[in-house]
Amino acid sequence: MFRDVTFGQYYPKNSFVHNMDARIKLVLCLLFMVGIFFVQSYVGFALVTVFLMVVILASKVPLKSILKSVKGIVVLLILTAMLNIFFTKSGNVLVSWWIFTITDEGLIYASKMLLRLVYLVIGSSVLTLTTTPVDLTHAIERLLAPLKVIKFPVHDLALIMSLTLSFIPSLIDETDRIIRAQKARGADFDTGNLFQRAKAFVPILIPLLVGGFRRAEELANAMNSRCYEGATNRTQMRVMKLSWRDLVASLVCIIVFGGIIVVYAMKATWQPILPWMYF
């Protein structure tokens, strides 16, 4: 039943983006996510489109896998578009029917919002498609390291993430086993209304939960036996090294998104002389 569930969506390939340092990828992805909201004009979106195309080409991930993630938010996209179209009252009215009015500004605003959301999802899925969950965990731990100064439990957080990742497969296996065991005793998961089906899952959740506690204790014993004493005096085997790729990628991203932010900030002075930049 849960066999085909893949957690994370790493797409193994040997590419420029795959070989980048996970920390840089994560930071650049955040920069991209913030930057996309400063894009005002179609000219800007054209630039971002070119940028994304270059990134996707450099990642060697097929476009199909990337667009799959967009499919997941189609409902959200439609909803956002409708809200933006119907609730923008300014601009020239194009169509007016009952309480609904559609204006040209509403359409423009909605289309830009759609582009932003789609690009947001594409950008973040490039990160998850080219970075293993383990690498991401390490990256988060290293990036949050400065927070140790204010006693933020960075190590504990990273350990929890790493343990969760390593336990997902065995939890899926166990769920599978319990479902089969309950089915063998005549449990029915496939008929009845939503409420009945939800109720049918209680006999799965209880053994899973009980098993979870047993696991947790065994894991705690195993970790203690291997001299675990929290974050104190711990070292790490993995070294994260920056390469020329990270430098190149960072420079490109800073130029593109730095430019976008400058254009946004200079709107008042540049719009009269360079109107195309703000179309």
Binding site: M223, C227, E229, T235
Partner: peptide, 24 residues
């Protein structure tokens, strides 16, 4: 399954020495 702390073999094996604070 209940004593693996990492999802990559070598990182799991490294868990002990990491706890001891041994150089990388």
């Amino acid at each position: 399954d209940n004593q693996m702390v990492a999802s990559i073999v070598e990182e799991d094996v490294a868990f002990g020495p990491e706890n001891l604070g041994i150089p990388q």
